[in-house]
Nucleic acid binder design. Sequence first.
DNA 1: AAAAAAC
Length: 607
Amino acid sequence: MRSSWADSVANAESSASASRSSYVPPHLRNRPPSSDPPVPSHSSAPIAPAARPSGYSGGTSGGSRWSAGSVRDTGRFNSGGGGWNSRTGGWNRGREREVNPFANDDDKNEAALNDQENSGINFDAYEDIPIETSGDNVPAPVNTFAEIDLGDALNQNIRRCKYVKPTPVQRHAIPISVAGRDLMACAQTGSGKTAAFCFPIISGIMKGGHFVQKPPGSRTSFPLALILSPTRELSVQIHEEARKFAFQTGVRVVVAYGGAPINLQLREMERGVDILVATPGRLVDLLERARVSLQMIRYLALDEADRMLDMGFEPQIRKIVEQTDMPQRGMRQTMLFSATFPREIQRLASDFLSNYIFLAVGRVGSSTDLIVQRVEYVSDSDKRSHLMDLLHAQRANGAHGKQALTLVFVETKRGADSLEHWLCLNSFPATTIHGDRTQQEREMALRSFKSGATPILVATDVAARGLDIPHVAHVINFDLPNDIDDYVHRIGRTGRAGKTGLATAFFNENNSSLARPLLELMQEANQEVPDWLSRFAVRSLHGGGGRNRRSGGGARFGGRDFRRDGSHNRGGGSDYYTGAGGGAGYGTAPAAYGGNYGGAGVVSAWD
DNA sequence: AAAAAAC
């Protein structure tokens, strides 16, 4: 009784529409139905519900509690057909209703053929990445996914994603997480960070049977894992990724964020949620309504963790982590990921961690050689005409007469609107994304940009972090940020996954405080630094600058565990620094990381 | 100082 993939998808669609109005995930809203092709390209891997892998570890023992199907049989999900995590029916029905998360990949397949398939990772670009780890008994890294016992269903999805081998951050982070250890990881977003924390979570949920009964009639959901991110779009993106990894594992992933109708999100949660991806505000709302309990949380992941713990977010995060029924640190597994990790933020973060391992993936010296960084002196009054020059030149060079995707960062929301308006007046197809737009407008803008319909996107810092937008050829810092970290995240929207990119910054007197950190960053990345910028840097040293140095300069492109600093005495210190965890070929060489920068301040791994 | 994040 083996049905085809197409059949199962068709079943899923018809059964979804047969019962109540079919739920459309937020990230799929406003799309014509036809953009959801029913027949995936992976014809070689048709996994119908009836043809699921029978055993977790590839064995023939179909009754293994690790098998994908049996997850729903543990009682937790499906006690007597009315399991609290599947109110609308047994797992079979839930399975059929699962929309194929790979369906939309079809339109990308053409582009994906030439590189490392869908992963898009150019592994050659990551050959010489140095790794630093510290902490007690660091688990050894792996070289293949097969070395990690993630389970058949997850392995299937890894194949469907066309991930051939783990990226450096995955090689190290996954064994650490699978071993149950807390983790602070400094790594590039585009190199597979989401997978690095999703794989262990999904695998762990599948392995651990849970038998908690939801009180009858209660509408509270009890997710087992919580993934927080600082922007709605990033949460949507993480949800999209996680759904692929969790496809047909029985593990349900739900996203909740503000600006979108809460009822749809509530309904999704009522159908069961194992992994909740959320932005902080909406989660607090859900907690106050008692629609979510964090009592069962076994995994907590903070993406862009340094942003989540900065001044704007820290109170909310503290509330969520420390003032709810979430198990205390040590009783849950906590994973923090970011590309930048200022030392003071590391200190804050250690409140949430228990005997954690610090991992930094970065390359010394040549970190951003995939991104060509340019700085141009442009006075405020010349910025628009200068931008137009750049865009004209780019259009002339563009392939197929198409404008290459260009992401333009500005400082303020008003500035974003104004610049977009001006660009459109001048016949440049642009749109904008910022926090004053409705969520619908924001998601529309992002789609329109990704598709190339409006190849110019004017953005505030809402788009600076984490967003994976393929084919961004050029990032223009029309207004430079005040913080070098933000610059690092912004330019990281290009040159992703081993591809090259261009980043242009408009610099003038107003950016003096950024001169020195920018100079250091560019020198370290072997970028050509204009003489006038060096003069600005020297000048800013005398002019009472240093406000951007975050207690003394930035150690970039390589991590440093703040526990290594002499000033930090936590339980005797040296125990934490047990080396590189068997990373053959990778030296710990702490001196190589930021030694030139006084060892203080920002830690970064070039995203 | 701005941006983000709930209604």
